[in-house]
C-alpha cells in the first residue's frame, strides 16, 4: 500500500531550490524545479554523509555542498564524479498546496 507522507507546503520551497525533510528517522531532500515540478530524493549524498539540502540546485541538477558531485534529482542519476552511486528517488504528488511523498 502506498504510504503518502505530507512533507511541506508547495510554497515552502522556492523555485529551483531544495529543502530538507525528516521523517521517521530518515532524511530526504525535496526539490522544486525551474519548471515548477516537485521531486524527492534521499537526503544524504552517496559520497559522504553530507545533506543535499545545503547544495545548489541549477536546472535539474543538485550539486553536493562538499565534493562537487552532481545528481539529476529527477532520476537520482549521479552525473559527475566523485559520486558514482545513484540517489534513491521517491514519488511526489501535490494536493491542496501540499507536497506529499511516497515512502
Amino acid at each position: 500500500m502506498a504510504n503518502w507522507i505530507d512533507a511541506c507546503a508547495a510554497d515552502d520551497i522556492e523555485e529551483e531550490d531544495v529543502i530538507r525533510f525528516d521523517h521517521a528517522g530518515r532524511t530526504f531532500a525535496i526539490y522544486r524545479s525551474p519548471d515548477d515540478q516537485y521531486f524527492c530524493t534521499d537526503g544524504l549524498c552517496t559520497h559522504e554523509n553530507v545533506h543535499l539540502a545545503d547544495g545548489l540546485v541549477m536546472d535539474h541538477t543538485i550539486e553536493c555542498p562538499k565534493h562537487n558531485g552532481q545528481f539529476d534529482y529527477r532520476t537520482g542519476e549521479a552525473t559527475r564524479v566523485p559520486v558514482c552511486v545513484n540517489l534513491a528517488i521517491y514519488q511526489v504528488k501535490l494536493a491542496d498546496g501540499r507536497v506529499l511523498i511516497e515512502i
Binding site: 553530507v50 545533506h51 545545503d54 547544495g55 545548489l56 550539486e63 555542498p65 562538499k66
Partner: peptide
C-alpha cells in the same frame, strides 16, 4: 554553521 555557505560559494 555546517555547510551554510556552500550554495553561495558554488554560485
Amino acid at each position: 554553521i555546517g555547510n551554510a555557505v556552500a550554495k553561495d560559494i558554488k554560485l
